[in-house]
């Protein structure tokens, strides 16, 4: 094992190859603004926001539940868009594939968060952790759909092949979401209607609440942006590390082969069998 490869150099190589989406400076500024914005949101949501007349403090969960759900959909939307861009021959690039994967991972995270927060909110308000209502079931199915997508991505394969597979899977999944939602809402509908975006009603949300909710959505979107950019860079570094490992394995094999030819006629099957990673 050589120690000459420092992690810093490795990552710089990776970023040079992948072409970072945003400069490091931008990402770190973004990270700090996420922190500040989140701290502000905690203060706004817990002490500035008025207490709901019916649901009391439980209603404050809205400031995290609603933005988490919004982000889940945004993330899967970005995954679908990037997948379509990858499949389109003119815009085909592994950058889109990497972005699609990064976004889906964060989408799954926020879907899980949405389900968990919804459960915690449902317990005091509806008196149950879970109810088989249309939106809940759709979200749960969405969660499993994208877990499957991520499982597909995790199986090692040639990057281009994997990218095409994943892109098709993502697009098929995104087509399924409206059908699932439609069928499940036919099946049962208990959930309260959308309050802010409801069709024939004016926003019934208190003005302060609405502003804080808006702030929450903006904050969560910033967090999403930060996480996606970081995950994208990380994926580039991972790929570079894989390539490096492969190159190293090839070099080791070559030297083994050379030494076995020069040194002795005896079989070297043990050494070959123990070589890490197998080049196709």
């Amino acid at each position: 094992m050589t120690t000459s490869v420092s992690p810093v150099r490795g990552s710089r190589d990776a970023s040079a190859r992948s072409g970072l989406l945003a400069s490091r400076r931008f990402v770190s500024v973004l990270g700090w603004s996420c922190l500040v914005s989140m701290a502000l949101l905690v203060w706004l949501g817990l002490s500035v926001a008025p207490t709901d007349a019916v649901q009391k403090d439980a209603q404050r969960l809205m400031y995290v539940h609603v933005p988490a759900a919004w982000l889940a959909y945004l993330a899967f939307g970005v995954t679908a868009a990037c997948s379509a861009l990858y499949l389109w021959p003119r815009t085909r690039s592994l950058h889109y594939d990497r972005l699609a994967g990064a976004s889906a991972e964060i989408g799954v995270l926020f879907t899980a968060l949405t389900l968990a927060l919804g459960s915690i909110w449902g317990r005091p308000v509806w008196g149950t952790w879970w109810t088989w209502d249309a939106r809940l079931v759709t979200t749960a199915i969405l969660f499993f759909l994208y877990l499957g997508y991520l499982a597909l991505r995790r199986v090692p394969d040639d990057p281009q092949v994997r990218a095409r597979r994943s892109a098709i899977a993502a697009l098929v999944a995104v087509v399924d979401v409206p059908i699932v939602h439609f069928s499940v809402s036919w099946w049962r509908t208990l959930h309260q209607e959308g309050t802010v975006f409801g069709e024939d009603r004016d926003a019934q949300l208190d003005a302060t609440m609405a502003w804080i909710l808006l702030w929450a959505v903006v904050t969560f979107t910033l967090v999403y942006l930060f996480l996606v950019l970081r995950r994208y860079d990380l994926a580039g570094i991972e790929e570079a590390a894989d390539e490096r490992q492969l190159e190293r394995a090839i070099v080791e094999r070559r030297s083994e082969a050379a030494s076995s030819v020069v040194a002795a006629p005896e079989p070297v099957s043990v050494a070959v069998g123990a070589a890490p990673g197998s080049a196709p």
Binding site: I141, L145, G148, Y149, L152, I179, V180, S183
Partner: peptide
């Protein structure tokens, strides 16, 4: 895929939820 036996049901069954319903 090497893991196709396990990946396929995970991919397919959520998509088929509307058919089940």
């Amino acid at each position: 895929l090497r893991a196709r036996e396990t990946v396929l049901p995970l991919l397919l069954l959520p998509v088929l939820a509307p058919v089940l319903l």
